[in-house]
């Protein structure tokens, strides 16, 4: 690990050969624009949903006799957002220090790469 090689060389040398063609997945631009992929799928499947309507719509999928287009997409988006948005609240309620029960659980200094022991986020 300590041999002085250039950044570009090392990047490739310690990457698994099968993963080398897919390194673009780690680029920030790709990550930011990945957003559009599910959006397109979402729109397409909603359009198909209008063409092939559900045989058994749930009561909340209809207003009177009118079937809401993309009903499962709306449901999915709202449900997902709800789950994620209540998470910080739950975290405040339920999270305790890692050694709360006194049975260990703190990061193992042998393997941990966590920059801060205070619990700082390090994901982007």
């Amino acid at each position: 690990m300590s041999d002085p090689v250039t950044t570009a060389e090392r990047d490739l040398s310690d990457i698994h050969p099968a993963a080398r063609p897919f390194l673009f997945l780690g680029e920030t631009k790709v990550k930011r624009n990945f957003l559009w992929l599910p959006l397109i799928g979402l729109i397409l499947s909603s359009i198909f949903g209008v063409i092939h309507p559900s045989k058994y719509p749930a009561p909340w999928e209809t207003i009177g006799d009118f079937v809401i287009p993309g009903s499962w997409a709306i449901f999915g988006f709202l449900a997902y957002s709800f789950i994620v948005l209540v998470a910080p609240l739950l975290f405040k309620l339920l999270a305790r220090p890692e050694d709360y029960y006194g049975e260990g659980g703190l990061p193992d200094p042998e393997v941990s790469t966590d920059p801060a022991i205070t619990g700082e986020a390090h994901h982007d």
Binding site: L35, L37, F77, Y80, V84, R96, P97, E98, A121, H123
Partner: peptide, 23 residues
């Protein structure tokens, strides 16, 4: 797709909670 889209949107607007160490 809606779920994946929601994930990306929430990420983009920094609404997705970061992984934090806790019990």
């Amino acid at each position: 797709f809606a779920a994946i889209f929601a994930f990306n949107v929430l990420k983009r607007f920094k609404l997705y909670p970061a992984e934090r160490r806790a019990e």
